[in-house]
Design a protein around this nucleic acid. Structure first.
Length: 596
RNA sequence: GGCCCAGUAGCUCAAUGGAUAGAGCAACAGCCUUCUAAGCUGUAGGUUCCUGGUUCGAGUCCAGGCUGGGUCACCA
């Protein structure tokens, strides 16, 4: 039941009856009444003053009186300036609660044959280094927005594009050949992605030594960077790779497979997954073909050195290279190829790229290029850009060793969850396996919530010490609320209290109705989160609900409530709050523990 | 320099053009015979970067400025 719609209709009727004029639908503003005022929904009357030709207060009074008379759900009203606060009948809130109990889908749109297909690309790692904190924000946002889009009735295909080719991979391979002595993940005990990443670092160290050596002989720095033997070897290797050299390809496949095993572990730990993975090694040639087609059709131009360019000056942008003078692909070319393959593979209605905001320009260009190439979906691809994650000491820089590694971070969070739990003696009496499970759930809840509660668009600060805080506006606080609700329900069941699935009591106190008020806004929040691509809305809703419930929980007894009807009501209310927290958290990819 | 984004309590973050700008952390003062104290209650903390404009109403929209970040590669 959409109460706002009903009120709107009645307001139109009221204006007609009271002032003899019809009014446009969009002039009527209805909002949830702010917490510090009495009331449930508020009608803003300022837009009606021109019609009523009376003061704001008087107009609101007349309108309020009419609505109480003519709308059964409204019990009372009050007026503050131009704001008409409507107070709902208790039965309305009871009905809302009963509806929420009965409806497991929460009124979300079901996925049908007519649903739109949305492909969401996220993660997009390079195979030469392990995932870090920036990837974590990407992965969590990508996964969460996928779940939110699904809840809004879309068919979602989660996809990942792995950058598995290029000079950077050759650097790792070369270093492994030179200094690896046959080391493997099994022999070294390292995770595959970390092992390969270490050789990437090794290459860089040795490369820098060579540059320094050349500079000492009097060579300029730029020239030294270009002439260093290691760099030449890496380039040669890339050429061999492109020429399908068996030895290079075999090594490449071996090392990449190590990396994928490592990534899989990290993805699993984070709880994210994909329906389809693309590899740039398989898409870049498609991109090259598309660019050549565009060249033939006159969309692009070729220069004397035979490089291919797109001139975007008429769009207010500059010129963009698409194929190098040696005919090889650049980043943009690969994205064109990947896009084409995807649209051949799936009936995609919308494409969402979850990629950092430093690439806004790139996706603006990609959109125009796809459009120029005649792809009808090029124009409205959506770049879901998110802000960078900074540390208290500033930006993460791999060269300065300030990068926060994803695996280390998760392991560290679990450690803290363990020691805090032990200190509080929370889990005494549970088995080791159960304890470990809860530590993990809590640790990941803390990490995920900390990142997802922030507006994705904004640059955010990640303070490791604060992120592992379990008090206040945090994941564990909300999980804790859920666990307590489960505890109450368990106790009730043990005591043999069987409450009905529908309740009816006549009087609600203000905390109870305000709790239902927060609850019933959930579907609207999810819809908005989908439209604005913002898991943060869902996260902050979950916190509001949990906070509201905690206050309620402390103020009122549930198990010891003498009045049976009221006890049934409170048990049912607790159950629905628990269900809603669980559902909200599942949209964020966060698990809830039954006890903690 | 051109373009893009941000600036809100000491710190981290909220606030579909609406009312007295809200939470958490940190600080201070309380609450464990009572359904889980990873909790609850209270105190203190603000010229929403500045200057104008739009209107019944601006943290939010517009213009200009200040500060910070991003981007403008034959890197990805």
């Amino acid at each position: 039941m959409d109460i706002e719609k009903i009120i709107k209709g009645k307001v139109i009727e009221a204006i007609d009856k009271l002032y003899g004029q019809s009014i446009e639908d969009k002039l009527i503003q209805i909002q949830t009444t702010r917490k510090d005022f009495a009331g449930d929904k508020t009608v803003v009357v300022f837009p009606f003053l021109r019609i009523s030709r009376k003061s704001a207060e008087q107009t609101a009074q007349e309108l309020g009186a009419w609505l109480v008379e003519n709308l059964e759900q409204i019990a009372d009203f009050n007026v503050v300036k131009g704001f008409l606060n409507l107070i709902f009948d208790n039965n309305f809130w009871i009905a809302e609660l009963n509806e929420a109990v009965a409806d497991d889908s929460w009124g979300f749109k079901p996925i049908t044959d007519q649903s739109e297909t949305v492909m969401i690309e996220y993660s997009s790692p390079n195979t030469n280094k392990p995932l870090h904190l920036g990837h974590i924000r990407n992965n969590l946002l990508g996964y969460s927005i996928s779940e939110i889009m699904k809840a809004n009735g879309n068919k979602v295909i989660k996809t990942n594009i792995v950058n598995d080719r290029g000079i950077h991979i050759c650097k790792s391979m070369l270093a492994w050949q030179k200094w690896g002595k046959g080391e493997t993940p099994a022999s070294s005990g390292k995770k595959g992605d970390h092992l390969v990443g270490d050789y990437y670092v090794k290459f860089d160290q040795e490369y820098k030594k060579q540059i320094a050596g050349l500079v000492q002989t009097g060579m300029g720095e730029e020239e030294a960077k270009d002439k260093a033997p290691l760099m030449n070897e890496a380039r040669e290797m890339l050429l061999k790779w492109e020429a399908n050299d068996t030895e290079v390809r075999t090594l490449w496949e071996k090392m990449n497979s190590w990396v994928y095993e490592g990534f899989d572990q990290t993805y699993k730990a984070l709880g994210v997954d994909f329906d389809k993975i693309y590899y740039e090694s398989k898409t870049y040639t498609v991109g090259r073909d598309e660019v050549l087609r565009g060249l033939k059709e006159g969309a692009f131009e070729q220069r004397e050195d035979s490089s291919v360019w797109a001139n975007l000056e008429s769009e207010g942008l500059d010129q963009k290279i698409l194929l190098r003078s040696d005919g090889t692909s650049v980043y943009m070319t690969q994205d064109i190829g990947t896009a084409k393959l995807r649209y051949m593979d799936y009936p995609i209605d919308h494409m969402i790229y979850v990629v950092g905001n430093e690439q806004i320009y790139h996706f603006k260009v990609l959109s125009i290029l796809l459009d120029k190439l005649g792809f009808k979906w090029g124009k409205d691809l959506y770049h879901f850009s998110y802000g960078m994650v900074e540390l208290p000491q500033g930006k993460m820089k791999s060269r300065e060793g300030t990068v926060v590694d994803a695996d280390d971070l998760v392991a560290g969070m679990i450690e803290v969850a363990r020691s805090v739990s032990q200190e509080l003696g929370k889990l005494d009496g549970y088995s080791e396996a159960e304890k470990e499970e809860i530590y993990r759930t809590v640790a990941l809840g803390a990490l995920k919530y900390f990142i997802l509660k922030v507006d994705p668009k904004k640059t955010m600060l990640f303070n490791p010490e604060e992120s592992i805080d379990f008090n206040g506006n945090t994941g564990p606080f909300i999980q804790y609320t859920y666990a307590r609700i489960q505890s109450v329900l368990r106790k009730a069941s043990q005591a043999g209290i069987e409450y009905p699935e529908q309740v009816s009591i006549l009087n609600l106190n203000s905390k109870e109705s305000s709790l239902i008020k927060v609850l019933s806004s959930f579907p609207e929040i999810v819809k908005e989160a989908g439209e604005n691509h913002s898991p943060a809305l869902v996260a902050n809703f979950a916190y509001d609900l949990a906070k509201e419930f905690n206050q309620f929980y402390h103020e009122f007894s549930i198990m010891n409530e003498p009045d049976t009807q009221t006890r049934y009501f409170r048990l049912l209310l607790s159950q629905v709050v628990g269900k809603t927290i669980k559902k909200a958290f599942s949209l964020l990819g966060i698990a809830v523990p039954e006890r903690m």
